[in-house]
């Protein structure tokens, strides 16, 4: 009975997702049943839509920049958190991890208030990057915490004992051993930034990110099948990235002979 329920639940989880490819290949502009036959023209239209290309490039820029910055900040924070004791540590980590439990609209609004009303800055992709770094860093820290936690501190001491400086120890021992965590943190941060809508909605200027562009398309029903085609591609890319992240994590485990302790989430 439990098994039946779980299967039903999975069906519930997947039901809307499975519609994505259905309507992406449906030869009709109205997203409803009955279907109108098979077509790939929506995919073809994707290649010729300049606005969409611009939005995609914007999103890739934002996601790429934010994920790298978030992982750099995350590395410092996770390392400090796991390895060192210092005053007000809990408070500092609490503040840094806060975006994890803060409604995103609050982050968006507060940055909007400061950037526009108080500092008079122009909104641009960089304001979105600044906010995305803020929300991606806690995810990066969560993943990297686990990496640093499973790193035996005497490995670093052994390297120093064998004549390495601190910098060499980091390069030769620490970095290779936490690399799977770094890659996973990069991929997760990238995916979160790529999909984030509400903050970007508040903070983009004239250059929309992909979700902001999709949002505007949802107001123009004629273009919705194109969005479905795009969504199908994004879904495949997302799953691809996830598989990559998971494979990378397992390879890391196998390489260091560690035990599998569940997924990186």
């Amino acid at each position: 009975m439990l098994r039946a329920y779980v299967i039903l639940f999975l069906a519930f989880l997947y039901a809307p997702i499975l519609l994505l490819p259905v309507f992406a290949f449906n030869d009709g502009t109205v997203i409803a049943f009955p279907l109108d036959g098979f077509t790939t023209k929506w995919f073809a239209e994707l290649w010729t839509n300049d606005e969409l290309h611009a939005a995609l490039m914007n999103s890739l820029f934002v996601a790429g920049t934010s994920s790298v910055l978030a992982v750099l900040l995350g590395l410092a924070a996770a390392r400090a958190n796991i390895r060192y004791r210092f005053p007000a540590k809990a408070a500092a980590m609490g503040l840094i991890m806060l975006p994890l439990v803060l409604p995103e609209i609050i982050v968006g609004v507060s940055l909007l208030v400061v950037a526009v009303r108080m500092l008079g800055l122009d909104l641009s992709l960089w304001t979105v990057v600044a906010a995305h770094v803020l929300i991606c860093t806690p995810f990066a820290i969560a993943i990297l915490n686990a990496s640093f936690q499973s790193l035996d501190p005497s490995l670093e001491e052994a390297a120093i004992d064998l004549g390495c400086s601190r910098a060499e120890t980091f390069r030769l021992i620490t970095l290779p051993l936490v690399m799977p965590g770094i890659v996973a943190a990069l991929l997760i941060s990238f995916t979160i930034s790529l999909d984030e809508f509400i903050i970007a909605f508040f903070l983009t200027g004239s250059d929309p990110t992909l979700p902001v562009y999709i949002w505007s398309l949802l107001r123009f029903p004629r273009l919705i099948p194109v969005v479905m085609a795009l969504g199908t591609i994004l879904m495949i890319v997302s799953i691809g990235i996830l598989v990559l992240a998971e494979w990378n994590r397992r390879r890391g485990l196998a390489r260091t002979g560690a035990k599998d302790s569940g997924g990186f989430l």
Partner: peptide, 13 residues
């Protein structure tokens, strides 16, 4: 001095 650690600290990679 050189040390043999309790966990041996063999570099796994």
């Amino acid at each position: 001095t050189n040390m043999v650690f309790q966990s041996y600290a063999i570099f796994p990679h």
